[in-house]
Amino acid sequence: MRIIPKPATVKNPPEFFTGDVWLDAIAAPQEGGQRMVVSRVRFAPGARTAWHSHARGQTLYVTQGVALVQSRGGEIIELHPGQTIYTPPGEEHWHGATPDDFMEHLAMLENADDPSATTTWLEHVTDEEYRR
C-alpha cells in the first residue's frame, strides 16, 4: 500500500476540447495489471470535448453543474449532480457544460491493452451540433 502524490491540475489540450477544461488525475494504472483511470474534469461554460470513443467504455458521474452528453446520432441528454451515465466501448460521443454554467464530473474508464488506444479522438463538436 502506498500514498500516491497528487499530480498538478492540467488544462486539457485544444485539439481535443473546445473552451477551457481542467483535469485532476485521481487514479491511474498501477503495477499488477490495474487499468483504472479516474479524473475530476471541470468545464467552463460552453466548454466541451471533441467527438471521441473509448476502447473499454466510460462512466461519467456529475458532481456540479449541468452536463450535456450526446452519442453520435442521438439526442443531447442533460445530467445533473448525482447522476451517472455509461457510454459503451466504441460509442462515439461528446460531453461538456451548458452555455451558462460550469460543470464538473468524474470520468472513469479502464485503459486498453495498448494505453494509446484507450481514447480515440475525432473531430470537434461544431457550434451547431452543440446548440441543438
Rank of each mutant, 00 (worst) to 15 (best):
E91M: 11
R42M: 03
Q34E: 12
Y61L: 12
M103G: 04
S53L: 12
S53N: 04
I76H: 03
I77C: 04
R48L: 02
H105R: 10
M103L: 12
L60A: 01
S71G: 09
T59H: 10
M103W: 02
M103R: 06
R42S: 00
G32W: 15
T98D: 07
A107M: 09
P45W: 12
R42C: 05
T84Y: 07
R40T: 11
D101C: 11
R42D: 05
V62T: 11
H80M: 04
G74M: 07
M108G: 00
Q83F: 03
V38L: 10
E110Q: 12
V41K: 05
T63S: 03
H54S: 07
T59N: 00
T49V: 10
E110G: 03
P81S: 13
V41G: 07
H80T: 04
H93C: 03
L68T: 05
I85M: 03
T63D: 06
A44C: 13
A107I: 15
L60W: 12
Q83C: 05
R72L: 15
P45V: 02
Y61F: 15
R42I: 00
H54P: 14
P99N: 11
Q30V: 14
E92L: 01
V62M: 11
L109A: 12
G32H: 08
H105Y: 02
V69F: 01
I85W: 00
D100R: 00
F102G: 07
P88M: 13
G57R: 05
N111R: 11
G73E: 12
H52G: 09
D101Y: 10
W51T: 05
R48G: 07
E78I: 07
Y86W: 13
R72F: 15
V41I: 09
H95A: 09
L79T: 01
A107L: 09
S71W: 13
A44G: 04
R72I: 10
T49R: 07
Q58Y: 09
P88D: 02
Q83E: 08
G90I: 15
T84I: 07
L79N: 00
S39C: 14
H80Q: 02
A97Q: 01
R35G: 10
T59S: 10
A112E: 07
G32I: 13
S71L: 08
